[in-house]
Each structure stands twice: as C-alpha cells, then as structure tokens.
C-alpha cells in the first residue's frame, strides 16, 4: 500500500519557502474556498434537484389540474346529460299526461256537450204547471234536479214525464219537504237521476 502511494506521486519538483504562518493561512483560505465551492456545488445540485422536482411536481400538478378540469367537464356534461334525459323523460311524461288530460278534457267536453244537451232537453221538456225548478246540476254523471211543487201529484207527474224522456236509467226522489210561505203551501223536492 505504501509503495503504491509513493509511486503514484512520481516526482516533486516545487518548493514553497513561505513562512509557516502564511502557508497555514493559504491552506486555510484554500480550505475555505474548497468548502465554499463544495457548499455552492451542494446548493446548486440541491436547487437543481429541487428545480427538477418542482418542475416535475408542477407538471404533475398541471396534468392533475387538466385531468380535474376534464373530469369536471365530464361531470358537468354528465349532469347536463342526466338533466336533459330527465327533462326528456319529464317532457314525455308531461306529454303523456297532457295527452291523457287532453283526452279527459275531450271526454269531458264530449260529456259536457251531452249533458248540456240533456240539460237543454230537461229544461225544454214540458213540465206540469205546478212545478218550477230551482236548480239543475250534475255530479259524476248523475243529475240533481231541485225544484218546488204546488202538490205532490205534480211531482209524481214530473217524474213520470222525465222517465218518458228515456235519458236516465233510474230516477230517485231523494227528498221532498212541505213548506209554507206567507200562508201558501208548497213542496220542495230533490231528484237524483242516473244515466
């Protein structure tokens, strides 16, 4: 080991006769310079490494950010799509219900027309002289006829007449009541007619 360490050095052909204190100072200065160079190098390497890492992190961040943005866009698109889907479904539902409603309305209109005709018939149909109607209404296809009569007989005649019209399947006298007004007797009655 000793041999090789000398051989590597080959020859020494310089001398330095500076005073020892100066040599020590120079050695110290050189040491400081070396330390500084090492320190600067270390800082440089670290900052370089940091810069690379920072760059990489930054790149990764950018990639993640872009991905997040894309994801957000996709999510938004998805929400919009779902909303549109829902809206389409709703629209369809609404359309169906509207159709249904329109059918109902149409039906009702038709019914209305029919009932109207029946009302007209009922109104136009000749009544006994002692009968006068106070209201005419319909409920679930049933007609309710409220009226007053001078006598019970007139009520019976009126029911018979309606029956003759052959509009209603069944006719009930749901109520009749005798009333006196200013010394005159009369009857109020309610007729329920089923179609």
């Amino acid at each position: 080991m000793a041999k090789s360490s000398v051989k590597k050095k080959k020859n020494k052909t310089r001398i330095n006769l500076l005073p020892l204190s100066d040599k020590i100072n120079i050695a110290r200065r050189n040491k400081v310079i070396v330390y500084l160079i090492v320190l600067v190098g270390y800082i440089f390497i670290l900052s370089g490494y940091d810069y690379i890492i920072y760059g990489k992190t930054n790149n990764a961040r950018t990639v993640v950010f872009n991905l997040n943005q894309k994801l957000e866009t996709i999510r938004n698109n998805n929400i919009i799509y779902t909303t549109i889907q829902k809206a389409i479904l709703n629209k369809e539902k609404i359309e169906t219900s509207l159709k249904k409603d329109s059918l109902i309305i149409n039906k009702l209109n038709r019914l209305k027309k029919k009932e109207y005709k029946k009302f007209i018939k009922i109104i136009k149909f000749p009544m006994p002289d002692g009968i006068w109607l106070t209201s005419l209404s319909s409920n679930n296809g049933n007609f309710i006829i409220d009226g007053n009569s001078m006598s019970l007989k007139d009520v019976s005649v009126y029911i018979k007449n309606i029956k003759k019209m052959k509009i209603f399947k069944k006719i009930y006298l749901s109520g009749i009541e005798k009333k006196i007004k200013k010394g005159n007797n009369y009857y109020t009655f309610d007729l329920k007619c089923k179609l």
């Binding site: 000398v6 051989k7 050095k9 080959k10 020859n11 020494k12 052909t13 310089r14 001398i15 330095n16 006769l17 500076l18 005073p19 020892l20």
Partner: peptide
C-alpha cells in the same frame, strides 16, 4: 528556518 524539498524517484 523554513524548508521544503523536491525529489525524483
């Protein structure tokens, strides 16, 4: 004194 040396192998 101050001294230094040179040598040849």
């Amino acid at each position: 004194i101050v001294y230094d040396y040179i040598y040849t192998c």
